[in-house]
Amino acid sequence: MNIFETTVVSTRIRLARNINGLPFPNRLRGEEQIYSVLYAGVKKACDRVFANDYYSMANIDSLTSQALVERHLISKNLQKSKYGAAFISKPEDISVMVNEEDHLRIQSIIRGFHLEDAYNNVAKVDAEIKKNLDVAFDPKLGYLTSCPTNLGSGMRASVMLFLPGLTMTNRIEALILKYQQLGITIRGIYGEGSKAEGDLYQVSNQAAISLSESEILNMVKKVVENIVNLEDVARKEIAQRRGLDLKNDIMISYGILKYACKMSSQELMQNLALVKLGVALGYININMEKLNNLTVNTQPAMMCFITKKNMSAEQRDIARVKMVQDTLRKEE
């Protein structure tokens, strides 16, 4: 397995788009009829590009909607939007949110490092939408968005990275500061502030009115390549410096995952991070993607969604370990 395969979890691109003549979602005052035009236009465009499931935030049950949030297919913002809706592709690699902060948030998430593929996905939907709807655009400002920080291409490219080496060597803070000044934001995905649970970080471009789509893609690509190389160096360093102690920590975590009877989400994230590092260093032979899937599938709503049961916190802690152990058993 190369360093990219053990470091890059997924790639996401999103475009923010609005329609001329319709008030932005934050100024919705019950103009349902107007919005049916929007839904129809988006549906037509989505149907042409991908087979999809439609979810309306007014009718969706809270478990399904929470599980969509945990899979990063819709946002918490959309959940709260009374006129919110989403068109999600069957393989779940494309989702179009309607009436989130903007009329449209077109996004594509792909496993691994595939900026161009993700961009092509959203560009296809975007082109189709422009055939059906009058997208708001100004030659000087770019795409007109509800929040002016998104002016310009309205595009954000994000790459989710697994960075145990840079975290353990305490280099991540300096890296975050350095890149912030270069137009790139790095933040922990789970957990609060700089304490990233599971050593998972999201690298994305900051808003900039004057950056073109290809400039954003190139910039994010270069930064990710750079960070992945630094991570490679850091992993080799800690493997050499901590040697058997590190391997011991990794194997203890592996043992915990295999034999524990219950586990909180936080505990799982900690142990999973070490086991994934073990896979990257060649101590353990498990498919990395399956381990990455566990991160999402063991989130509270996802567990209830997959098992089709409503569970208490303790029931979830038990089911969580079972899910992990099923995955490990199949891999061995």
């Binding site: 003549g21 008030p23 934050n26 100024r27 400002l141 007109l144 929040c147």
Partner: peptide, 9 residues
């Protein structure tokens, strides 16, 4: 911190 429609611009 938000505009109300594209015309607001």
């Amino acid at each position: 911190g938000r505009f109300g429609c594209s015309e607001c611009y």
